[in-house]
Amino acid sequence: MIYVVYALIVFSAFFALAGVVGMLRMPDTFCRMQSSTNITTFGMIGVIAGGVLYSGFVLHNYEMLIKLLVMGLFYILTTPISAHAIAKGAYHHGNKMIDEAVCDQYKEDMQQ
């Protein structure tokens, strides 16, 4: 079982690495946010799932297991809400998308 835990943590480390590289390379605020979602989903869920398996099957500490599950639950519930708020706030503050952007139907509708 301990090897499953290692595998999950390596798996999420890979996605966290991809997310950080993406955040450094992406051209504008919104694309950077997209890349950071990589870290906030699989980068975190893998670690939490690894922790759940470790506390359940290796340590047999069920209080820790429940706390990890609650952490994961609140994490999943709160992350998208902050992402909505940051994206909308950044847009209305005047952050521009890159010039190569395909379309901006939000701007078209706001000008009407």
Binding site: M33, Q34, S35, T37, I76, T79, P80, H84, A87
Partner: peptide, 8 residues
């Protein structure tokens, strides 16, 4: 929003 690549 939680799936990477799309944000509402």
């Amino acid at each position: 929003t939680l799936t990477p690549g799309t944000i509402i």
